[in-house]
Amino acid sequence: MGSEPLLSVRNVSKKFGGVLALSGVSLDVFTGDIVGIIGPNGSGKTTLVNAITGFIQADTGAVHFKGKDITNWKPHKIAALGLTRTFQVMRPYFSLPAYKNLIVPLFSPRARKTGGWRGGGKMGSRDTVAVDILEEIGFERDSYVPFKMASSLPTGYLKRLELARCLALRPEIIICDEVFSGLSMSEMASMVPLIEKLQMEGITLIMVEHRLRELFRLAGRVVVLNFGCKIAEGTSEEVMEYPEVKEAYFGSEEVYDYV
């Protein structure tokens, strides 16, 4: 690992009215990492993602990406720099075939510059590139899945569609906001190798999760949030040793939901 982090979040805080959704959270992400961010519901995970990607303005703190200070940049400029994210609440074009959902990111200046998916010079028609990306992410072309209406796809595919939307930009970092939630056991089982594949392709990933088991398989390092504060950081084994984490997760009877 290089000494310079690819993404560095310093002391970010955010208040919504009286609620302190984030308080002084810091975090470093290095190229090639899979970093997990976990925490109970309402602990500020999505708020942190929003603050990093420019969807909300942090009250204090700074975010650096590739050595640039991107604090309070507009979301589209951050995405154009190669830092993109999925949304916990997906809203694809249900009335369009799956591959048409990728036209928007492929239309962006970044996708034009990077030549769509595999790079290299002139981009084919966006439709072709879109189908290629979907195939890459597990939409079986032989059974015409990329051409199916988004409204007819199960959640597992919709989550992948959301990932594909990010991939179309050929990003350096993808922040996944709960890609595992709402998936069936078999869908989760097939999502794990997909994430590993993205990592092997050189994409740095930040996985925001509520569920722990799949995340612990993937993430080299885990950050735990509770009530907007970072309460632990380390490998998955290490963070489970923190009493605060045990309190936050295992103090409740929901323990079997998580692990």
Partner: peptide, 8 residues
């Protein structure tokens, strides 16, 4: 939101 996150 998705359009912004797509760099547009």
């Amino acid at each position: 939101q998705a359009v912004k996150a797509s760099g547009i």
